[in-house]
Design a protein around this nucleic acid. Structure first.
Lengths: 331, 331
DNA sequence: TTGAAAGCGGTACCAA
DNA sequence: TTGGTACCGCTTTCAA
């Protein structure tokens, strides 16, 4: 049958307490005895019961991760990093892919299943904050929308990303620079656009055009078609998302308009395809690994009580220049 | 402080046993009393402790899901479906993104953390099978490689997928049909290729060319370049993966070769971009939702002991004809 | 239909 | 350094 700690104690000739100590790497165990215990554990193929440990300790060692979608290189990388760092700290990951707190009783936060929660790119974070605060469950948000002072979060400077991308186009000599923006309910989308506008303004340039819509390939395609039909293409485009960018380029290539010779394009996020599909996309990369690691660090600090107040960490994105941008044609 | 079942019992004037019964929807509770308990629960904002329940029941209600990557529409959809079905059955999901059983002590199967395991597209399933059998942890594999008789699995008929895709091209009138295959260690890749060969053979056609490599955009691109440089392009290509397909098309479009007018292309998997990037890709779709649901069903049956022996379910893929295939030019 | 009491498998305090 | 023992919070007999 199931072998438990008592079996190990008996087999090793020591008490359950000592076995427990060995299990938890307590230093106060005579080396000789530790070996005995370890031997018994191995021989019995004993594995401690997680539920019992959780119950006795009052902690689950599980961290919940709530994410809206996994179809995204950025989020995916963050998830991967979180997994790794958590594992290194002896924590486990429970994942939930869900768009919002539909039930206002998100299953991860029921029943004290988790010691803490990481929420990735929430769209509507209000309900989470309220509920989690009430339940006193430590949590940290990543790439969140509203800046709620009492909430820990890890964010990326989207304004800077938009600014740098636009600046790059300006420095190449472009004057007619358009922007493909994301949904207005994403703070990140708004910030990127602000960065774009600021960069233009500093040079006394007017926005050539600004569109708002979903962060999808189809949307990028649609806008390109629209502009081409109106015969009013910019010489450069800053897309708030790589999907928009490739959709846009896709439409251009259909009619033989070349990137970057005829139109320059900058994307955002450095999705996998950005460096796989020709022309390789100039884009803005967010430091996903660092973000994931930082989120975990903050969360674990909170759990261990080593963080008195909430804290916010902001990362800088990085412009990656590849093939989709060049100086405008001199005609 | 933490409110527990005793607090609820006291508040409602009933015993913990009755409270427990209400919690578990036992029928043998007087309606009047049930209401009293429910009221107390609400007023105290009581939430049962998961660890305690697990310990008492000997079950965690957690199902582990091991997946190699999430950067894939197919896997992603399966994961999503699994999540949903599991939730409907009152189970929770613990996710692990990992390529193999590096440690031979995969953390999900330590400490009886899970009641069962779903393993998606394992590359090297041997170690898993051995360890899980030893631990007597119920599990089901999805899209697995080897056909291990005693293991439950849910698979897709890759042979048929390859056959149908090729047949489609043949019916359009193509004679020079090439294949872009995946890594030889993927049984699925092998099967797709076999289907391709079979379809050709039935018509007395010779394979125009067969390439093997990674399922990546870059690989598709590379092969297209190679063939173009050798001036030996087929009129149609069956790619064993959508990434290969778009990489291939990407290379063609760079030099102005049109799809499907000059070359027809069929992909595999129906990734998101397949229906977003022009020309929309003709591809083979795997019924991800059904697969996920079936995997969960089988697993839960095993857990409940309603499945004496292992079982295998095989699904048919579906050819989705879009814009990337057409009759060859009649020259 | 209800409840007293005995686990479930560990951890942690306290004494030795 | 070691071990006895009281929990941790819930479920499950078994009687009533």
């Amino acid at each position: 049958m199931k072998v438990n700690i008592f079996d190990v104690a008996k087999k090793s000739g020591l008490s359950v307490v000592t076995v427990s100590r060995v299990l938890n790497n307590s230093t106060s165990v005579r080396e000789k005895n530790r070996e005995k215990v370890l031997k018994a554990i191995k021989e019995l193929d004993y594995h401690p019961n997680a539920a019992a440990r959780s119950l006795a300790r009052g902690k689950t060692r599980i961290i919940g991760l709530i994410v809206t979608t996994l179809q995204d290189s950025f989020l995916d990388e963050v998830v991967k990093e979180v997994t790794d760092v958590l594992k290194a700290h002896g924590y486990y990951l429970a994942l939930s892919v869900s768009s919002g707190m539909e039930d206002e009783e998100h299953y991860l936060i029921q029943e004290d299943r988790v010691d803490g929660l990481i929420i990735l790119s929430p769209v509507n974070e209000g309900p989470y904050v309220v509920e989690l605060k009430k339940r006193k469950i430590p949590f940290v948000m990543v790439d969140n929308q509203k800046d709620i002072p009492s909430v820990s979060n890890v964010i990326v400077d989207n304004f800077k990303g938009g600014y740098d991308a636009t600046k790059h186009l300006i420095e190449l000599g472009h004057k007619k620079i358009a922007h493909l923006g994301g949904p207005a309910f994403f703070l990140s989308a708004i910030e990127r656009e602000k960065g774009y506008l600021q960069a233009l303004q500093e040079e006394g340039l007017e926005p050539f055009a600004v569109e708002q819509g979903e962060f999808t390939i189809k949307q990028g395609y649609k806008i390109a078609r629209k502009w081409m039909e109106a015969s009013s293409l910019p010489t450069a485009v800053f897309a708030g998302d790589d999907n928009l960018a490739i959709g846009f380029m896709n439409a251009l290539s259909e009619v033989g308009i070349r990137v970057p010779q005829d139109v320059s394009v900058v994307g955002y996020d450095d999705q996998i395809f950005a460096s796989a599909l020709k022309p390789y996309l100039t884009t803005v990369r967010q430091p996903s690994a660092q973000i994931g690691k930082t989120a975990v660090d903050i969360l674990l600090k909170q759990i261990d009580g080593n963080l008195k107040r909430s804290m916010t960490v902001k990362f800088d994105p990085e412009l990656i220049v590849r093939e989709s941008t060049a100086a405008p044609k001199s005609d």
